[in-house]
Design a protein around this nucleic acid. Structure first.
Length: 579
RNA sequence: GCCCCGUUCGUCUAGCGGCCCAGGACGCUGGCCUCUCACGCCGGAAGCACGGGUUCGAAUCCCGUACGGGGUACCA
C-alpha cells in the first residue's frame, strides 16, 4: 500500500482529470430543484485509455486493448466481426490487464458468481493478464469461514486458477478485506483531509423528516451536512453524535464507457452523497471495493449488473483517490447480466438451483457447467455451443457479451454437460465417476477386482450417461452382492409378468448349456432361442431378460452385461427371476 | 416517484441497414437406427414487445409507449 508515499496536499494537485467536487453555495443539496444547479455543470467524463474516442474512430491505430471498448449492438460501435483474425495491433493495452473477482463469503456460492468468475478469468487469460481473487468480508455478521472455504473449493473444482489473491498470496495482499482495515483507515483519514468528503451527523430519521417536510420525492441523502459551520459541528458533537463520512458527489454528469453496455451517463443530481464509513469508523463497501481496486491496480472491473448504478459513485470516488495518491487510474467497468431463475427473478440464494454445490453433487463436470455458464450471455459462434475452456479463452471478447439477463435452464445445462462428457475418454470418465461410485457404495476402491470390473464395464456406459451420478444407477447391478441384489419394482412388475417369466425361463434354457460365456455366444443363444425359435420381437424377447439380469429396464447392453456378470451370477439372476 | 439497464422461437443465442418471408442449440414433436437407454441421422411446430420516424430498403438506426430488472441504505 502506498502509505509511505508523499502525501499530496489535500486541496492541491488537481489536474483537469481530477477536479475537486464543486462546492455548492447553498447549504445542502436542493432535491427536486434542478433549477438551482449550475447550468454549466461540468462533465466528468471517464474515458479510460481513451477507449471511447478510439471507438468513434475505428481506423485509428488501436494501440490499446481492443476489448476494453464496450460497445453493444445498436450503438454503432465497432463490434469485432466474429472470427476475423485479430490484427491491427496487439490485443493488449500498454498497461497489462488486471481483473478480479471479489465475492463476499456469505452462504454457498451460486451460479451467477461462477459465471462472473469465468468471464473474469477468461478475460484475464485472453489478454495474458492477472486474475486476482479477493474476499470482501467486511460484514462480520454475515460472513462465515465455511462459506470462504466453499468459495475456494469451488474455484479449484472449476479449475479457474487465480494468479494472485487468497491462498496463493501476491504483491498486493492481504487479499481479505478483514485483514485490510488499516488500509481503509488510512485512506479514509486522507480522504477526510480533502474536500472530497465531509462528516455527516444526520440520522436516517432526520433525513426522512426533512424530505417529508420539503415535499421532495427524491430519495437518498439531502446534503444537509455538506457545509456545516464550526458551531453546528460543535453542537452536534456536544450532543455526543459521531459522524459518518460522506462522499461529496460533484455536480454535473458522470459518463463512463461500460465494457458491455457502451456509454452510460448519470446526472449526479440523482446520485446522492453516500457514506464511506459508519459512525463507528467501520468502512463500508462503497469505500473498500474502490480502494482495493485502486491499490491492487485493477484495470477492468467486471461484475454483476446489480452494481451498475453504484458505478457513478465509484467513478467519482476514484477522482478523489487519484487526487490523494491512492489510485493511479480509474478502472474500466463492465456489467454482466444477471443469471435468472424460474420466472423473472434473479437466481437467489434461496433457490436450490442457484447453488453450485448442487451441480457438483449431481455429477456435473466442471467443464460442462463452465461451458453452459459461458453460454449465458456469450456465444462462441453462431452455430456452435460446445467448446473447451481453451477455445473460450481464444475467442472471448467482452464486446460479444450480451447485456440482457439470461435464465438458467437445467435441461440445456445437462445437455451441454452430456456433450462435454462425450469429449472425455472412457478412462477419464471412469476416473471422474469413481468418487461417485465409491460414495454410493457401489465400488470398493480398495478392491482390485472391483477396479478391474469397472474398467471393463465403463466403456459400456461412458457414452450413455449425461451426468456422473448416472453411472451409479447403470452399474450398480454388476457390483452388488447377489444376496443384496434387488429389482426395480415397477420394472419387474411390468416385464416379469407371467409372459415375461416364460421368456426368462427360455433364456435360461438357452444359455445354461453354453460352453463359453461370452457376449457373442450369449447373444447367439438368446437370439436363436427367443427371436428365431419363439418368434418374439427382439424388444419383447430381451426386455424381461434385461430386468432379470440388471434389475432395471434401462441398462448397459444386455449381452455384454451378462458376460461381465459371469456365468454363475448370470444364471443365478435368471433363476431368481423365475421364482 | 426519480434515475439507470434491458426486450429476437418456451429457454440460451446468431444477427451490426440489403446475405433474413430471421440461422444454431436445448426443450417439444414426427420418423430412421436399435436388445433397453443414450448416441447418431432426417423432418416439423415455434420468435424480431408495440407504435411512429429515418431510408430505395429496418430485427438492425432514431423517438415514444409497454413490459421486465436494478438502484435510490451508517447492505453488498
Amino acid at each position: 500500500m502506498d502509505r509511505d508515499r508523499p502525501r499530496p496536499p489535500a486541496l492541491r494537485r488537481r489536474g483537469p482529470g481530477a477536479d475537486p467536487p464543486q462546492r455548492r453555495p447553498e447549504a445542502g443539496r436542493q432535491h427536486g430543484r434542478p433549477d438551482l444547479r449550475h447550468p454549466d455543470a461540468r462533465v466528468l467524463r471517464l474515458e479510460r485509455d481513451d477507449a471511447a474516442a478510439r471507438r468513434r474512430h475505428p481506423h485509428r491505430h488501436p494501440r490499446g486493448c481492443r476489448s476494453d471498448g464496450g460497445g453493444r449492438r445498436g450503438r454503432g460501435l465497432d463490434r469485432r466481426p466474429r472470427h476475423s483474425h485479430e490484427q491491427g495491433g496487439p490485443a493488449l493495452s500498454n498497461t497489462p490487464v488486471r481483473v478480479r473477482m471479489a465475492p463476499s463469503p456469505t452462504g454457498s456460492p451460486h451460479v451467477g458468481l461462477a459465471r462472473t468468475a469465468l468471464y473474469n478469468w477468461a478475460f484475464a487469460r485472453k489478454h495474458g493478464g492477472t486474475f486476482v481473487f479477493r474476499i470482501e468480508d467486511t460484514d462480520k455478521e454475515r460472513n462465515t469461514e465455511e462459506s470462504y472455504e466453499s468459495l475456494i473449493d469451488l474455484m479449484q473444482w472449476l479449475g479457474l486458477s487465480w494468479d494472485e489473491g487468497v491462498v496463493v498470496g501476491g504483491p498486493y495482499g492481504p487479499y481479505r478485506q478483514s485483514e485490510r482495515t488499516e488500509v481503509y483507515a488510512d485512506v479514509l483519514a486522507r480522504l477526510r483531509e480533502s474536500s472530497y468528503t465531509y462528516d455527516c451527523f444526520c440520522t436516517t430519521e432526520e433525513v426522512d423528516a426533512r424530505r417529508k417536510a420539503s415535499g421532495s420525492k427524491v430519495l437518498g441523502y439531502d446534503g444537509f451536512c455538506r457545509e456545516l459551520s464550526a458551531e453546528q459541528r460543535a453542537a452536534f458533537e456536544a450532543e455526543g453524535r459521531a459522524p459518518v463520512v460522506r462522499f461529496r458527489m460533484p455536480d454535473g454528469e458522470i459518463t463512463f464507457d461500460d465494457l458491455v453496455r457502451g456509454e452510460i451517463t448519470f446526472q449526479t443530481e440523482h446520485v446522492p452523497d453516500f457514506a464511506l464509513a459508519r459512525a463507528n469508523g467501520d468502512p463500508l463497501y462503497t469505500l473498500t471495493a474502490p480502494v482495493d481496486d485502486a491499490t491492487m491496480e485493477i484495470t477492468h472491473v467486471l461484475r454483476g449488473e446489480d452494481l451498475l448504478s453504484s458505478t457513478p459513485r465509484q467513478v467519482a470516488l476514484f477522482e478523489g483517490l487519484k487526487a490523494i495518491g491512492v489510485a493511479k487510474e480509474t478502472p474500466a467497468f463492465g456489467h454482466l447480466p444477471y443469471v435468472m431463475g424460474e420466472g423473472n427473478k434473479k437466481l437467489s440464494k434461496r433457490d436450490p438451483q442457484a447453488h453450485m454445490a448442487l451441480y457438483r453433487e449431481q455429477g456435473f463436470l466442471p467443464e460442462g457447467l463452465l461451458n453452459y455458464l459461458a453460454l449465458l450471455g456469450w456465444s462462441i459462434a453462431p452455430d456452435r455451443d460446445v467448446f473447451t475452456l481453451e477455445e473460450m479463452v481464444g475467442a472471448f471478447d467482452l464486446r460479444d457479451v450480451n447485456p440482457n439477463p439470461a435464465r438458467f435452464d437445467l435441461k440445456k445445462a445437462e445437455a451441454i454437460n452430456a456433450a462435454q462428457m462425450r469429449l472425455l475418454s472412457v478412462e477419464q470418465v471412469t476416473e471422474r465417476a469413481l468418487p461417485f461410485l465409491v460414495g454410493a457404495g457401489v465400488v470398493d476402491e480398495g478392491s482390485e477386482a472391483d477396479r478391474e470390473l469397472l474398467a471393463r464395464a465403463m466403456p459400456l456406459v461412458a457414452e450413455r450417461i449425461n451426468k456422473l451420478t448416472e453411472a451409479v444407477d447403470m452399474l450398480g447391478f454388476l457390483f452388488v452382492a447377489e444376496e443384496d441384489f434387488t429389482r426395480d419394482e415397477a420394472d419387474a412388475a411390468k416385464l416379469l409378468d407371467e409372459k415375461g417369466v416364460e421368456v426368462v425361463q427360455a433364456a435360461y434354457d438357452a444359455v445354461e448349456p453354453l460352453g463359453e460365456w461370452t457376449t457373442d455366444a450369449i447373444q447367439a443363444a438368446l437370439q436363436g432361442k427367443l427371436v428365431e425359435e419363439l418368434g418374439l420381437k427382439p424388444r419383447n424377447a430381451f426386455g424381461p431378460v434385461r430386468v432379470a439380469i440388471t434389475g432395471r429396464r434401462v441398462s448397459p447392453p444386455l449381452f455384454e452385461s451378462m458376460e461381465l456378470l459371469g456365468r454363475d451370477r448370470g444364471l443365478a439372476r435368471l433363476r431368481s427371476a423365475l421364482g
